[in-house]
Computed example of a mutant assay.
Amino acid sequence: MPTCTHSGCGQSFEDGANDAMACQFHTGKPEFHEGLKGWTCCKPRVLSFDEFMEIKGCQLGPHSSEPRHKDDPFKADLTKYDDVLPEPELAATAAATAAVVPVAPKAPAEEPLDNDPADAVVPVGAACKRNGCSAAYESDAASRGPEQCVFHPGRAVFHEGTKGWTCCKPRATDFDEFMRIAGCARAAHLFVGAQRAAQAQAQAVRCRRDYYQISGDVIVSIYAKKIDRTASSVAFDADAIRVHLVYGDGVVYDDTIRLYGEINKDASSFEYLSTKVEIKLAKTAPAPWPVLERDAA
């Protein structure tokens, strides 16, 4: 699958599923100034590079696989801010990186890795959160090997016009080259993380929902604002729908709705809107349903 080249995205995508709301990206340029990091197109400003990489895009649109032009201002604009050190502790470690072996079989023992819990629910397409890895979750069998992830266990260093990582030697002069520096350690992918999984479980809530019927369809609305489209999912079975929504500031809604009647799961669909997810269920029989869930009948 191609990988999206939009700033702030980097996800793999299928052409057939690349609709007008598939990509959440930044239209502006990176801005590193006086220790703060952000994008020229939106307001959030953060202190660390990890937080900068997690700033959600401010624009929705289809994914793109078009390469950036060599004179893309995305590159040039980074150079203006390279003279400002992002964190004092990163500058102090820059000189020490020369002694680091460039390829290590595992991350340093003194920096324990965060790992996904064995029972973590990972939506298809979720991106690995480890530095330098752009893998997307496909299935447990395909994406949960013990050393499938090649990543950087260290932190980003931007110093005197060069960019790199505290854990290995390579240095780059522009941001795109920096993002292509190969990882120097191996571990299992990190799609959720133990801490985030625990926080998500603690914040799990019930969302308001309603439904109505038109012709051969049942329309279900589940209300939630600022839905994270990359972390959320809706799956259809013949007699149930499974909903996983991440919205707001990481609040999680999980539900399995056991339907009154059967549906054609291939003809059913859903759409993320500004205040809700709207789910269209294609009934296999035209008779109206007295209730949405069979357990309530």
Rank of each mutant, 00 (worst) to 15 (best):
D266C: 07
E262H: 09
A285V: 12
E278S: 14
Y211T: 04
I222C: 10
Q199F: 10
V243G: 00
Y247E: 06
R258C: 10
I279E: 04
V218C: 02
S232V: 05
K276Q: 11
A202R: 07
Y253Q: 08
I257Q: 04
Y223H: 14
Q203M: 09
Q213N: 03
L281V: 05
A224L: 02
G250M: 02
I219W: 10
Q203S: 09
A282N: 01
V205N: 08
A285C: 12
K225L: 14
S221T: 14
Q201P: 03
A240K: 05
Y272G: 08
V252F: 12
Q195A: 14
I279W: 03
V218H: 02
S268W: 04
A238H: 13
N264V: 05
Q201F: 08
Y260P: 07
D255I: 14
I219Y: 11
C207P: 02
G261L: 01
V251E: 15
I227D: 01
N264E: 06
E278R: 13
A224E: 03
Y253H: 14
A238C: 13
A240F: 02
Q203H: 06
D254A: 05
A282D: 03
F191C: 00
V218I: 02
S269M: 05
Y253R: 08
Q195V: 15
R242I: 04
A235K: 11
Q203L: 09
A197H: 15
I263F: 01
I279K: 01
H189S: 00
R229P: 12
L259W: 00
D249N: 11
T275A: 15
D217R: 13
A194I: 06
T230P: 07
R229S: 15
S233W: 04
G248N: 13
Q195Y: 15
R242C: 04
G250H: 03
V277N: 03
Q201K: 09
A194V: 07
K225H: 14
A194Q: 10
